[in-house]
Design a protein around this nucleic acid. Structure first.
Lengths: 155, 155
DNA sequence: GACAGACACGTGCATATGCACTTAGATGAG
DNA sequence: CTCATCTAAGTGCATATGCACGTGTCTGTC
């Protein structure tokens, strides 16, 4: 690709904000995209992470803390912290498993289910805004690559 | 790419952890990749974000808070918080601009420059680990797409 | 039954993130 | 000069993130 024998000094010797660091690149994108989703979710009182927790829990409930954390690709202790405001607001309840008192059984409350339904509308707006700007097909491919990156790091 | 006229029922009707949310996908990847970089940087006492701050500042110093924040695609107030431990450790100094006493002039101290040099080695290990697992070319393309996503959201 | 070890989860700490609000300094209109 | 206004940056709060460590519970071994 574009050997040094050309006439033009090439178009990308070092763009002003050319980031070589994969970590910085993904964190910058995460900050920007989170702000967009948070902006749309603001009216519901939920943050992007909280929406993700409720949404995933609704599909796998009843779930243990460890199972939900793995499903969210999140540290177990991070999820424990993130659950606190959701429990305080009465959107999630944590029971104790009958067969093993160490294990928790996480579920959505009726209020949690209702809040999730409400938030899905706001989430869809954010999703649409991003994909309108970035491209729906490109977004799907980006999600695939990000998922592959998660797997690559886990290995 | 791959029209629907194939014979196979396609390979992805709904994988178990198929994430449709762009925000969740990028945050999950950011968490995993950050852990990898933090692991390599642990010996230096720097976190991934702190390395990013020092690295960027070394290229644009002296910089104002706002300029450095923009270069990092970070909220101005977030950077203000992130600078505190770096100032406390004596890696960064914040002076006052002579022409306008509201403006700060951020610079690396000699200790900060030395720490950055040391951390570059650890960063390179993390970068190599990720690109070995994910693919160097694919990583470059991923960074381009993430940068494009940042621009798309900004617009 | 007693106990070592494994296991699920919680807590404390430090940093990361950004919104709302505040403070200090600069600047132009009068 | 005075003041309204604009601007650069700081602060308080709540959540996000994960490591190190602690607590309670189960399980196999004796």
């Amino acid at each position: 690709m574009a050997s040094s024998t050309g006439g033009r000094p090439t178009e990308a010797p070092l763009a002003s904000s050319e980031t070589l660091c994969n970590c910085l690149a993904v964190r910058q994108a995460a900050r920007q995209i989170t702000q967009l989703y948070d902006e749309e979710l603001a009216g519901t009182g939920l943050r992007a992470t909280q929406y993700a927790v409720l949404s995933r829990l609704s599909r796998i409930a009843p779930a243990t803390v460890q199972d939900l954390a793995e499903a969210l690709v999140m540290d177990r202790t991070t999820l424990a912290h993130n659950l606190k405001p959701l429990e305080r607001e009465g959107l999630v309840v944590m029971g104790v498993a009958a067969h093993d008192r160490r294990v928790r059984e996480l579920r959505l409350t009726p209020a949690g289910t209702a809040k999730l339904q409400e938030a899905r509308v706001a989430w869809a707006r954010a999703q649409a805004r991003f994909e309108h700007a970035f491209g729906a097909e490109d977004a799907a491919e980006l999600r695939r690559q990000l998922a592959r990156a998660v797997e690559a790091v886990r290995t």
